[in-house]
Amino acid sequence: MSEERFSEAGKNLSLFKEKPAKVLLAKPGIDGHDRGILVLARAFRDAGMEVIYAGLLPTPEQVVDTAINEDVDVIALSLLNGAHMTVFKKVADLVKEKGITDISLVGGGTIPEQDKPALEKMGISGNYGPGTPMKTIIDHVMKRAAEARQKKMSGLH
C-alpha cells in the first residue's frame, strides 16, 4: 500500500534512475525520541530512497562525516528536545566549513514557527512538526535531493 501512496518517488525521477536518492537520517543531539525518525526511515525506504540511519546520539561531527563518506544527497535532521537552534546550526556550520554544496539539509521535530526563518537561512528547510502528512515530507525531501543531485552531476562542488 505504501508503494502506491508514495509512488516510488525516490526512483522515478530520471535524476535518480541510476542511483536512488540517498538520505542520511540523524538525531545529532542527546535525544532518544526516535519514534518519528524510525517511521520516516521506513517510509523513505518504501518511497524508494536509500536510507542510512545514523543511530542514536551521534555528534554533529559524526553526522557530517557519515554524510560525506556515504555521499548522500540529503541529511535529514530530527530533534524533539528543543536544542535544534544550537545543534542543527552546528551541522549546518560544519557542512559550510567543509565547503560542501551538494548535500541538502532538511529538518523536523518540535520546531516552533518563530525558529523556522532562522533555520531556513542556515539552509535547513522543511522543519516539519508532528502531524505533517508523510507525502508532504517525502515530496520535500525529494525536491531537496534533486537539487543536490543536480549539483553532484554537474560537478559544481
Partner: peptide
C-alpha cells in the same frame, strides 16, 4: 537531556540542551 545522559552543564554534548 544532559542530566538524563550523565553529562554536566558545561559538557560539549550539553550545548543548547541545558534546561530544555
Amino acid at each position: 537531556m544532559p542530566t538524563l545522559y550523565g553529562y554536566d552543564c558545561d559538557s560539549q554534548r550539553a550545548e543548547g540542551e541545558v534546561g530544555k
